[in-house]
Lab assay of single mutants.
Amino acid sequence: ETEYTFDDKREADRAAKEAQNNGLRVHVTKDGNRWKVRID
Protein backbone atom coordinates (compact mmCIF):
# COMPACT_ATOMS: atom_id res chain seq x y z
CA GLU A 1 0.00 0.00 0.00
CA THR A 2 1.39 3.36 -1.06
CA GLU A 3 0.05 6.83 -0.40
CA TYR A 4 0.74 10.01 -2.35
CA THR A 5 -0.39 13.55 -1.56
CA PHE A 6 -1.12 16.14 -4.24
CA ASP A 7 -2.00 19.82 -4.06
CA ASP A 8 -3.74 19.67 -7.43
CA LYS A 9 -6.79 17.49 -8.04
CA ARG A 10 -5.85 17.03 -11.69
CA GLU A 11 -2.49 15.55 -10.68
CA ALA A 12 -4.22 13.25 -8.20
CA ASP A 13 -6.71 12.12 -10.85
CA ARG A 14 -3.91 11.49 -13.35
CA ALA A 15 -1.96 9.39 -10.84
CA ALA A 16 -5.10 7.45 -9.92
CA LYS A 17 -5.94 6.78 -13.56
CA GLU A 18 -2.42 5.59 -14.30
CA ALA A 19 -2.51 3.17 -11.37
CA GLN A 20 -5.93 1.86 -12.45
CA ASN A 21 -4.57 1.30 -15.95
CA ASN A 22 -1.90 -0.89 -14.33
CA GLY A 23 -4.62 -2.97 -12.67
CA LEU A 24 -4.16 -1.54 -9.17
CA ARG A 25 -6.87 -0.59 -6.69
CA VAL A 26 -6.96 3.14 -6.04
CA HIS A 27 -8.68 5.33 -3.45
CA VAL A 28 -8.72 9.12 -3.78
CA THR A 29 -9.63 11.14 -0.68
CA LYS A 30 -9.69 14.85 0.05
CA ASP A 31 -7.56 15.97 3.00
CA GLY A 32 -8.24 19.61 3.75
CA ASN A 33 -7.18 21.39 0.56
CA ARG A 34 -4.99 18.51 -0.60
CA TRP A 35 -5.71 15.18 -2.26
CA LYS A 36 -4.49 11.78 -1.14
CA VAL A 37 -4.17 8.88 -3.54
CA ARG A 38 -3.85 5.50 -1.85
CA ILE A 39 -2.82 2.56 -3.99
CA ASP A 40 -3.30 -1.03 -2.79
Rank of each mutant, 00 (worst) to 15 (best):
E1G: 14
E1F: 15
E1Q: 13
E1W: 15
E1P: 14
E1K: 12
E1I: 15
E1D: 11
E1T: 14
E1M: 14
E1H: 14
T2S: 09
T2E: 10
T2R: 14
T2N: 10
T2D: 08
T2P: 06
T2L: 13
T2I: 14
T2H: 12
T2W: 15
T2V: 14
E3F: 10
E3G: 04
E3A: 06
E3S: 08
E3I: 14
E3Q: 07
E3K: 04
E3Y: 12
E3M: 09
E3W: 14
Y4V: 07
Y4L: 13
Y4K: 07
Y4H: 06
Y4D: 03
Y4T: 06
Y4I: 09
Y4M: 12
Y4S: 05
Y4R: 09
Y4E: 05
Y4A: 05
Y4P: 03
Y4W: 14
T5E: 08
T5I: 14
T5K: 04
T5A: 06
T5Q: 06
T5M: 13
T5S: 09
T5N: 05
T5R: 05
F6D: 01
F6T: 03
F6Q: 01
F6R: 00
F6I: 02
F6Y: 09
F6L: 02
F6M: 02
F6K: 01
F6E: 01
F6W: 02
F6A: 02
F6S: 02
F6G: 01
D7Y: 11
D7M: 11
D7Q: 09
D7K: 09
D7I: 09
D7N: 10
D7V: 10
D7T: 12
D7S: 11
D8G: 05
D8Q: 07
D8N: 14
D8A: 06
D8E: 07
K9N: 03
K9P: 10
K9V: 08
K9I: 09
K9R: 09
K9C: 12
K9Q: 09
K9M: 06
R10H: 12
R10L: 12
R10C: 15
R10E: 14
R10A: 14
R10M: 12
R10K: 12
R10V: 12
R10D: 14
E11Y: 05
E11P: 02
E11K: 07
E11S: 12
E11N: 06
E11A: 11
E11G: 06
E11T: 08
E11V: 06
A12L: 02
A12E: 00
A12D: 01
D13N: 07
D13W: 15
D13Q: 11
D13L: 15
D13K: 07
D13H: 10
D13G: 04
R14T: 07
R14F: 09
R14K: 12
R14N: 09
R14G: 05
R14H: 09
R14W: 08
R14P: 03
R14I: 10
A15C: 15
A15N: 03
A15W: 15
A15Q: 05
A15T: 08
A15M: 14
A15H: 08
A15S: 04
A15G: 01
A15D: 01
A15E: 03
A16Q: 04
A16V: 11
A16P: 01
A16N: 02
A16S: 05
A16W: 04
A16Y: 06
A16R: 05
A16D: 01
A16C: 11
A16T: 04
A16I: 10
K17H: 10
K17L: 13
K17A: 13
K17D: 07
K17S: 10
K17W: 12
K17F: 11
E18G: 04
E18A: 11
E18K: 10
E18F: 09
E18T: 09
E18I: 13
E18W: 13
E18H: 11
E18R: 12
E18V: 11
E18C: 15
E18Q: 11
A19P: 02
A19G: 04
A19H: 08
A19S: 03
A19E: 02
A19D: 01
A19Q: 04
A19V: 03
A19W: 13
A19T: 02
A19K: 03
Q20F: 10
Q20M: 14
Q20S: 10
Q20L: 13
Q20P: 01
Q20V: 11
Q20R: 15
Q20W: 11
N21P: 01
N21G: 10
N21V: 09
N21I: 11
N21A: 14
N21L: 13
N21E: 13
N21D: 13
N22L: 14
N22E: 08
N22D: 06
N22Q: 13
N22Y: 04
N22G: 07
N22H: 11
N22S: 10
N22A: 14
G23W: 03
G23Y: 03
G23N: 05
G23C: 12
G23K: 04
G23P: 01
G23F: 03
G23V: 02
G23Q: 03
G23T: 02
L24R: 08
L24C: 10
L24A: 07
L24P: 01
L24Q: 07
L24H: 12
L24V: 04
R25T: 10
R25I: 11
R25E: 07
R25M: 08
R25Y: 06
R25H: 13
R25A: 08
R25W: 05
V26N: 01
V26T: 06
V26M: 02
V26R: 02
V26A: 14
V26E: 00
V26H: 02
V26W: 03
V26C: 03
V26F: 04
H27K: 11
H27Y: 10
H27G: 04
H27E: 11
H27R: 12
H27Q: 12
H27P: 00
H27T: 15
H27A: 09
V28A: 02
V28N: 01
V28F: 03
V28Y: 02
V28G: 00
V28P: 01
V28R: 03
V28S: 01
V28M: 07
V28C: 09
V28E: 01
V28W: 01
T29H: 08
T29N: 05
T29L: 11
T29F: 15
T29C: 14
T29Y: 15
T29G: 05
T29V: 13
T29S: 11
T29I: 13
K30E: 05
K30F: 14
K30D: 02
K30L: 07
K30H: 09
K30R: 12
K30M: 09
K30G: 04
K30S: 07
K30T: 07
D31M: 09
D31I: 11
D31L: 08
D31K: 05
D31A: 08
D31N: 06
D31C: 14
D31R: 05
D31Q: 08
D31W: 06
D31G: 02
D31S: 08
G32N: 04
G32I: 00
G32Q: 03
G32V: 00
G32D: 04
G32L: 02
G32A: 03
G32P: 00
G32S: 02
G32R: 02
N33V: 04
N33F: 06
N33E: 10
N33W: 05
N33D: 13
N33R: 05
N33Y: 05
N33S: 07
N33T: 06
N33P: 08
N33M: 05
N33Q: 07
R34H: 09
R34W: 06
R34V: 08
R34M: 07
R34N: 06
R34K: 11
R34D: 03
R34Q: 11
W35Y: 04
W35N: 00
W35R: 00
W35V: 00
W35I: 00
W35D: 00
K36P: 00
K36T: 07
K36Q: 06
K36G: 03
K36W: 04
V37T: 02
V37I: 06
V37R: 00
V37N: 01
V37M: 04
V37Q: 00
V37G: 00
V37W: 00
V37F: 01
R38G: 03
R38P: 00
R38I: 15
R38L: 10
R38S: 09
R38C: 09
R38T: 13
I39A: 03
I39H: 02
I39G: 02
I39T: 05
I39W: 05
I39C: 10
I39P: 02
I39Q: 02
I39V: 09
I39S: 03
D40L: 15
D40Y: 15
D40N: 11
D40G: 13
D40H: 13
D40M: 14
D40V: 15
D40I: 15
D40E: 15
D40T: 14
D40P: 04
